[in-house]
Amino acid sequence: MAQKQISVKLWFEKEEKYKTFIAPRTNTKTLYEALELDEAAAKNTNSIKEVLKSLEDRMKFIVRVFRNQFTLEEFQEGLQSFEVSDEVRRIMGEIMGYEEVKEEEDFLPGVETEAFQQKKE
């Protein structure tokens, strides 16, 4: 069985190409921090400033989980605007065990949002 790894695929504008990054092994300390950030995100929904701060905190955490293989700015610029929420949610979910980590090589398949899927039905 192939080893399951948390990964992200980011676009680098200057090089005009995607790069895929694999997170090193995560541990229980990482899990606890992810759960705390997730809880804070659920509570901080009263203003857009709180939502943005929570999103940035989770993005900074993800950069650390990937051991700074890319910067916060590269993470922010490497995803399209409509991908950010889904990718942060997916990576956090994989760290916390809420989502199954993919074994496939294509780490960013065309994912449809729930709203889009409901529209199709």
Rank of each mutant, 00 (worst) to 15 (best):
P24I: 03
T71K: 10
E73R: 00
L10P: 06
E99V: 04
N46W: 03
E50L: 12
E94M: 11
I6N: 02
L72P: 10
N44Y: 03
E99Y: 14
Q80S: 02
F75G: 00
I22Q: 13
A2V: 07
L10W: 08
M1D: 08
R58Q: 15
K9I: 00
E114K: 11
V101S: 06
L55W: 04
R58D: 01
N27V: 05
M1I: 06
E121F: 10
K19P: 01
K17D: 03
T26L: 05
E77A: 02
Q69N: 09
Q69I: 03
L37A: 11
R64Y: 05
A2M: 11
T113V: 03
R89L: 05
F107H: 12
E15R: 14
A42I: 03
K43G: 01
Q69P: 04
L55E: 12
T45F: 01
L35R: 12
P24K: 12
E36C: 02
M96W: 02
E36Y: 05
S7A: 12
R89G: 01
M59A: 11
A42M: 09
V65T: 14
R89C: 01
Q76H: 06
F82I: 04
Y18D: 07
E121C: 01
F75R: 00
P24Y: 04
A41M: 10
G110N: 13
L37V: 10
M92Q: 12
S7P: 00
A40E: 15
Y18N: 11
E94W: 03
V101P: 09
S85P: 01
R67I: 02
G97N: 12
P109F: 06
L10G: 04
T45Y: 03
K102D: 09
M92I: 13
K19G: 01
K53D: 15
S81M: 09
V101A: 09
V84M: 04
G110W: 07
F21V: 04
M92C: 08
F12R: 10
A2D: 08
D57G: 08
M92G: 06
P109K: 13
E15N: 10
R67S: 07
D86H: 09
A115M: 10
K14P: 05
S81Q: 14
S54H: 07
T20V: 14
A40T: 11
V63Y: 01
E100V: 08
L35C: 06
R58A: 11
F12E: 08
D38K: 13
I95A: 02
L72T: 09
F82H: 15
L52A: 10
R64C: 04
T45M: 05
A41Q: 15
T113Q: 09
K14T: 07
K120M: 04
I62S: 03
L37Y: 10
S7R: 15
F116R: 14
E50D: 14
F116V: 07
E73K: 01
F116T: 11
F70Q: 05
M96I: 12
D86R: 11
M1E: 13
K19Y: 11
E100H: 12
F12G: 01
S85N: 13
D86G: 06
Q3M: 12
S7K: 15
K14D: 13
L10R: 08
R58H: 03
K29A: 07
V63W: 00
E114D: 08
D106K: 15
F116S: 14
